[in-house]
Design a protein around this nucleic acid. Structure first.
Lengths: 259, 259
DNA sequence: TCAAAAGTGTTCAATGTACACCCATGC
DNA sequence: GCATGGGTGTACATTGAACACTTTTGA
């Protein structure tokens, strides 16, 4: 690892383009085949993985910065992304700063020029829902190597990133009762058991099949098609698709969905 | 107005003690006698009132900064205060910055030394619930003169502060179904009609008296006393008090209260 | 014919909602 | 005695939760 490709150089996000003291972090939840995963990144020389994050360019909306981080990591556009909390404790980045000083020294980076990154940061946190099989993981200079971790088997993360994950999951699990999900997480044609498995993965609990069907159908956001999916070995489940108009209306106005 | 007592001097919050680019704003909701009010401040020379806000000291938690703003304005401690959203659009402070430049010029303040305040800010927003009859309004140098506005009769506010108010009220009205309220808003002994009036003021709608009583009693957070309140001219209502232990438990664990 | 998953309704319990009359008090 | 607000219970509708058998498919 040399200075050219280190944490502190080569990135599009040069200090002079970014706001000091402000960062964004993303809890990127990936779903596929009944599994929920979280995207983390590992920087050589740092003790523990972290959430993908970044800085806010001087003329960039904070929401757009989060969206940019998401897109840089996953290559995906149009993904559901939601700000959920801002982390602003004074000492939250102290440990990270100490580690970075150490790294800078080892890499012979001029610490004075890097003062901006050694200062305190507050972080605006977002969560996103993605389909991880659609994602081609991209590493980047600023934030190291990306990797999916199973939600039940997370490593310890730096600073308050474990709190962020816990908070994001808690809020997502509450929000799911008021917002439709699934549009970017399932193929355009999907079966009810697939949709149910998605809800079960997010809520991390089993749901009653008949009650689930009944409730989802009553929301009027999915439409039964005259097609079956061939799954082999078993009865062929009916395919459904989202009614995008009603789905978007439900996103905007909220739904009532007790699960 | 001279430089000594102007917007830009005399405050405990000197630029060198504060983080750049980060501010906090508080939606301080005041309740008394069935009325909901919002605390705003008016700075001479600025076109419209604003929400009370402030900056974050370099070694201060962001939550504590919001709490400090609240306390500086109202003199109240121990008030319910909750972070609800962070506003980070790139151009959100553009208008304010333009106005400030104008003000600085008029006041012959050295603009170079004030560059920190003319830059872009992102704002972490909080809402608080207070009893406005307990508040002695305090002006301050940084933020002008304080005043309560009726929630139904708000003036236009600067930048995105009207969005903040709208968002805060929306979130509060949702949260009220999961959190107990009232502890700092009512006398230690209160009547059920008083409590109901508080809920009605926050939700801005009438509630059914019998159903309200039934639901509140079922939460086990209030306790009937063997005392009545003398209100004159009418039947004397029974006094209640909060069961602080259960109230705090409900704050922490949440409640289910459909209204 | 067997294994595995899909599909389909009913019953019961809990909760929410609507609603009206008598009571206490001070003038 | 009258005006005003306090206090109380029931009936009905809606919603949530539990639950089992038949169908389809391919091996």
């Amino acid at each position: 690892m040399n200075a050219k490709t280190s944490y502190f150089s080569g990135s599009a996000q040069l200090p002079k383009n970014c706001l000091s003291h402000v960062s964004v972090d993303c809890i990127i939840l990936g779903y596929h085949d009944k599994q929920m995963k979280i995207l983390c990144t590992e920087i050589k020389g740092m003790p523990r993985p972290k959430l993908p994050g970044g800085f806010v360019e001087k003329k960039e909306n904070v929401d757009d910065a989060a969206y940019r981080v998401l897109e840089e990591r996953t290559g995906l556009k149009g993904v559901f992304l939601k700000q959920f909390k801002t982390y602003g404790n004074a000492n939250r980045t102290a440990e990270q700063t100490a580690n970075m000083k150490h790294l800078l020294k080892k890499q012979n980076v001029n610490a004075a020029a890097m003062n901006w990154i050694l200062d305190r940061f507050i972080s605006v946190a977002y969560y996103a829902l993605t389909e991880f099989s659609k994602v081609t993981l991209k590493d980047n200079f600023i934030d190291g190597e990306s990797r999916w971790y199973d939600i039940h088997n997370m490593p310890p993360l730096i600073i308050d990133h474990e709190d962020m994950v816990r908070d994001a999951l808690k809020i997502l699990r509450l929000q799911i009762h008021n917002e439709p999900i699934g549009y970017n997480l399932l193929p355009s044609k999907f079966t009810l058991p697939e949709l149910q498995a998605l809800y079960e993965a997010i809520l991390d609990k089993k749901l009653d099949q008949r009650n689930f069907t009944k409730k989802l159908m009553s929301l009027n956001i999915i439409k039964k098609l005259n097609e079956k999916k061939h799954i082999g070995g078993h009865r062929s489940p009916t395919l459904y698709k989202f009614n995008k108009r009603n789905y978007d209306k439900a996103l905007k106005d909220g739904v009532a969905l007790a699960l």
